[in-house]
Computed example of a mutant assay.
Amino acid sequence: MAHTYHRQCGCYSCGKAEEASERDEEMAGPYIEALKGCPTVLSEAMGELTEEEMASMAASLATGDNDKFALTMRTRIGMFVYEAVECRMDDLKCDMFTAATRLADAYGAEPLRQAVAA
């Protein structure tokens, strides 16, 4: 008898569900990366920085620690994009690929052609 998917189960149907999920994430990847590089997404992510993140970034700028500044920005933008994709998945009851492509369309974020073709 079939059961609901469980990530630690080793049965055939759970394995197929895991493979499908991995393919979905792989296909969504170029769109997620395009969202991370979109100026509008950057603007929105900047608006959601916490006081601690802002203080850390300001200190990094003041001391010339560009690597720390960039790491903080990359981390925050990545979190913002993944939260937006998860929210869209929940709202639309869809997979990651559909959510990422719809968000990319909404923001006007175009993935690199070579990334989509691969």
Rank of each mutant, 00 (worst) to 15 (best):
R23H: 13
E44N: 15
V81L: 03
L92C: 14
A28G: 04
T50K: 06
D65W: 11
G108I: 10
A55M: 10
A17H: 07
L42D: 09
D24Y: 00
V116F: 02
S21P: 03
A70F: 12
E33W: 04
Y107N: 10
E19C: 01
I77F: 02
A70I: 15
A34Y: 00
T75Y: 15
E44L: 15
T63D: 09
P30F: 02
M54K: 08
P30T: 01
E52M: 10
G108P: 10
E86K: 04
E86G: 05
M54P: 01
M79Q: 14
P111I: 14
G47H: 04
L103I: 06
C11N: 04
S13K: 06
G47D: 12
K93E: 15
A100Q: 00
R23E: 15
A20V: 08
K36N: 01
D91F: 15
Y31T: 05
T4W: 10
L92Q: 14
E25D: 09
T4C: 12
R7F: 08
A100T: 01
Y107P: 11
L112S: 14
F80S: 09
A62W: 05
M96N: 06
V41F: 00
V116G: 03
R74S: 10
A34I: 11
N66K: 13
F80C: 08
A70W: 08
S43T: 10
A55E: 14
A2C: 06
M46A: 02
E26T: 08
G64I: 15
G64K: 12
M57F: 11
Y12S: 02
L61I: 12
S60H: 03
T101F: 04
E48T: 02
C14H: 08
A20L: 14
F80N: 11
M96K: 12
E33M: 03
A117P: 00
L71I: 13
R76M: 13
A20P: 03
T98L: 06
A17W: 02
L71V: 14
K68M: 07
S56C: 08
C87W: 01
G29Y: 08
H3K: 07
A115L: 11
G47N: 11
C94G: 01
Q114T: 07
D105Y: 03
R7V: 10
E110F: 02
E48A: 07
M1A: 07
F97Q: 15
G37H: 04
M27I: 04
A62G: 10
D67S: 06
T50E: 03
E33F: 04
L71Q: 14
L35I: 13
M1Y: 06
R23W: 08
C9Y: 00
A104S: 11
G64V: 15
E51Q: 12
G78W: 13
E26Q: 13
A106F: 07
E83V: 06
C38P: 05
Y107V: 13
V41Q: 03
A17K: 07
G64A: 05
F97G: 07
E19H: 02
